[in-house]
Design a protein around this nucleic acid. Sequence first.
DNA 1: CTGATAGCGGTTTTT
DNA 2: CCGCTATCAG
Length: 775
Amino acid sequence: MDFLKTLNPQQREAVTTTEGPVLVLAGAGSGKTRVITYRIAYLIESCGVRPGNILAVTFTNKAAAEMKERIEKLIPPERYASSPLISTFHSFCVRLLRRNLHLLGGNYTNDFTIYDTDDQAKIVKSCLKDLHIDEKMLPPRNAQFAISGAKNHGQDWESFLKSNDPKKATIGRVFKLYEERLAANNALDFDDLLLKSVRILRKFPEVQEYYNNWFRYILIDEYQDTNPPQYALIRLLTQKQQNLCVVGDPDQSIYRFRAADIKNILDFENHYPGAKLIKLTENYRSTKTILSAANTVIKNNKERKEKDLFTANSEGEKIHYYQAGSGEAEADFIVNEILRWRRSHLGAEAQAAVLYRTNAQSRVLEEACRRVGLKYVLVGGFSFYQRAEIKDVIAYLKLVLNHTDAVAFERVINTPPRGIGKTTLDALFENSRREGLTCWENLGRMIEENRVQARAANALRAFKSLIEALTEQAEHLSQADLLKAVIKQSGYAKWLEDERSEDAEARLLNLEELVSAAAEAELRGETIRDFIDHAALVADTDALREDAQVTLMTIHAAKGLEFPLVFVAGMEEGLFPHQRSVASAVEMEEERRLFYVALTRAKKQLFITHAEWRRQYGDEVYNEPSRFLAELPLERLENRSRGDSWLARKNDDTRKRFIAVSGGNPEAGRAAAPKPAMTVYNSVDNVRDFFKMQQARKAAAAPASGSNYGYRQPEPEPKRSPAGTSGGFKAGDRVRHDKYGTGLILKREGDKLVINFPGYGVKKFVEAAAKLEKI
DNA sequence: CTGATAGCGGTTTTT
DNA sequence: CCGCTATCAG
């Protein structure tokens, strides 16, 4: 085994300790993926394990695909009759359930359908509606989240119903109905895939025995991100033998919000007594500077196993720090630095990534890239195939190929609008459910039996013949031509053309792009089915990544990746750490781990930036610099900001303190006169102050009306003020709202009143007079 | 049935 | 700012 020679002693031990439970605590950039792939190759080539007896579990499908590729390079698959199963927990469970779900009885068969998050949301909403629960009392999102969380923590709806907390009890009712609906539809949500698998393995020893004999060597990657059902599954699969190897890094556990339990990795040695612990602490990725910053930051976490990474790599450049005025200025700085970097680095060395906490931050960055003509890839945002117009047209294709596809049917029956409204559709779906017919069958039935109004019947008939005509054309048209036919004959093109908006034009262009994609697919010899399947596999940004000059993504999406040049943007209180995490110590530690993940993505050069203010939800929000900045080793930072900045002051303070201690003159060491203090507005009260200040400034610029000199600022008067509008209210007025209580009018934007209600935040009202009274 | 608009709320993410 | 929903007039 030549490849063992390329490993360090710890890595080699992790690869060759094949019997019994093994815990590999692998630091960032320590060659974790390499260890896993080599271990699989070692088991097959040196230990004579049949590849089919190996199961490797990864966190994402992409990671699984990459691992497969790497293994095939190490061991030629043609030499073996079987290959190791490399999959995510979920796809493994789908395989298991496609063989065994019928064992659970009831309505379940092995042909179950899988509900994604959108389907799930639809069901939850319909449950809330049918239980007459006001969406304001229990937002569907919250209910969905609570149900999923409960399922992942092993709670059932009964425990919720018994709760004394009325809110929990309400969730229990929704939970119960939700579960009944899924069962009635022979459908499983993502959580069920795991839970039902666990239940089957528990309930049917012969099934468990079967899988225990099948998978004799099990490897789990990113073990710190496993949740309770996944742990239960692993336990059940390793009942008979314990050749289990888990690999992970507790410092990179960032999925608590979806029930990942860091205790799984921290307590592994208790769960599997006699487990061998191997630590990989040499980092091969980053410079000493970057690694030291990451180490310094993560040390602030209390709940962690001590683990200091080291590297033989060079010291590298200092970490560059930049404080921008606005979010836009921050983005401009970043793109300019990327352009500069690209002047001296080529190919893989030129790869850059901009990381941020929330997806909302991507927009300014995208705009900045477009301004300077930088090609970028946005990971995690809406991909091309997720756009409504693309999904609509694809749904037409699906329906043409398969008339029983109910989801596609529902999507296109009134898109573009063709006079088939809610009443008609409700009747149609209700009828289908009652008589056990597909929507398509029922469509014909309803027309024949005159069950609907004449106008609706005509619309239904038109839709039916449209689909039938397209079905016929599908026989002889090329893929691209069929797609064109769909776009034209469905009226989709006309619908968009008539809209005459910029947005509609962009949508038409997207559809054109889809047609050329179909033509290309056909040239590659793919069928229309392949084309549709491909559209369903959303995250295929890999092809784009090759020629992309920058990758924009959230830090979550960046886990497992590395780039020579990395920017961590938006280092501001409220953003990162996120507002929702500041109240809890546990969540703050998770935010810090997230920062740690961000820092350790960088190989050569790291930039850390923040802005004094940025537009959030349309308002100018002033944020304080992130507390995490202060946790960085300041001596490793180079200040790139012009003028006043958080870092400049920090350094200034340090110098003053030093001079004070040594008895010198504090002013002597100052390079420049201090800049006027930056005012930080980040709380409700400060917003009010900020507004007062703005008002004062405005008043100074525009003399009071009636004066004869100077000029007046053209007031943005509303063009028309319909009766009952916000007229009569002005900034500074105190008002009462029937729901939010008393508030202060901050400003007026045309017809809109912007009001701050203490405890509820800033609200906007257009047709406000009805609900507001002056006090 | 459709389109306009007032009101409102808004993490992170994969399967 | 953006997207969703309830509501209402046409």
